[in-house]
């Protein structure tokens, strides 16, 4: 089932439509897919996903998310519950100074019966592996922990789609791994995951990569198809994943690995194979 279906989406931040942040974008995301949207600063990634839960109003084109027409004002709250979002900066998405109250905030807004709230807060915290932190102040947590609490606030509302808008950009390597691990876990549990990033390493494990440049979708396909395409990645202003870069640089030096590797492990395998042959 297609959960996100957009046709010919265009958007301008200027009142006079003098420059477009999105130009004729078509997009289709299946239920349960793990999609990474890759592109440089200003390529339109964030602008696009902010349409999915109507943080930005659709100006041109069509878009249906979880069977809801995003132009339908009456369903906007349902849409936002079904399509949750975690933002880049871990420090400016908290409304409360106590973790459990922060997570309860969304539930209260959706008029969840009071007696159900503690249980839903608990299970959301358990999902992000932050049980035991209920009474803590968010500002005493690490970056990765803050992002997991922000995610718990989204998960408590039981969304279908979870969007990570560069949610790892400000984190240290440990924090990035924590968030990436939870992403994979949610994906295995059947959630549809949409992650925006310009760290190519984070795109390697996706089901599908959508490459954006200058407000357009440049290409869309498997990580292998997109991330090993030298010209395409260059056009998008992206660096190649290290194993891919090494594959091409070694070729230039006359060393030919059998296949172009995508992960560090594949790279090591290719190198060991080449050595055992010689």
């Amino acid at each position: 089932m297609v959960l996100v279906e957009g046709k010919n989406i265009s958007f301008s931040y200027d009142f006079d439509d003098s420059s477009f942040a999105l130009q004729g974008v078509d997009i289709a995301i299946e239920q349960g897919e793990f999609v990474v949207i890759l592109g440089c600063n200003g390529s339109g990634k964030s602008t696009l996903v902010k349409h999915f839960n109507a943080l930005l109003r659709l100006q041109h084109g069509e878009l249906r998310v979880a069977q809801i027409d995003v132009k339908n004002e009456e369903e906007i709250w349902l849409l936002r519950r079904l399509c949750g979002m975690v933002f880049q900066n871990p420090d400016n998405q908290f409304v409360s100074s106590v973790v459990e109250e922060d997570i309860a905030f969304g539930l209260e807004n959706y008029e969840t019966p009071r007696r159900e709230i503690p249980e839903r807060v608990q299970s959301a915290l358990a999902l992000v592996e932050m049980g035991g932190y209920e009474k803590r102040a968010p500002n005493t947590l690490s970056g990765g922990q803050k992002q997991r609490v922000a995610l718990a606030g989204v998960l408590a509302l039981e969304p279908e789609i979870i969007i990570f808008d560069e949610a790892t950009a400000m984190l240290d390597p440990g924090g990035r791994q924590e968030v990436a691990k939870i992403m994979r876990k949610l994906h295995r549990a059947g959630k549809t995951i949409i992650a925006i990033t310009h760290y190519v390493e984070e795109a390697v494990a996706a089901d599908k990569v959508i490459l954006m440049a200058q407000g357009r979708v440049l290409a869309s396909g498997s990580p292998k198809a997109i991330l090993t395409d030298l010209d395409l990645m260059k056009e998008a202003g992206m660096l190649l994943p290290l194993p891919v870069r090494l594959y091409y640089d070694l070729r230039q030096a006359g060393v030919h690995l059998n296949h172009c590797p995508l992960t560090d492990e594949e790279l090591v395998e290719e190198i060991c194979q080449l050595r055992s042959k010689s």
Partner: peptide, 19 residues
């Protein structure tokens, strides 16, 4: 760094008779 790794591998793999 990446450049360190690249030059070490070039040497190792070319020197190993593959090139």
């Amino acid at each position: 760094t990446y450049d360190d790794l690249l030059s070490a591998l070039k040497q190792e793999l070319n020197g190993g008779g593959a090139g």
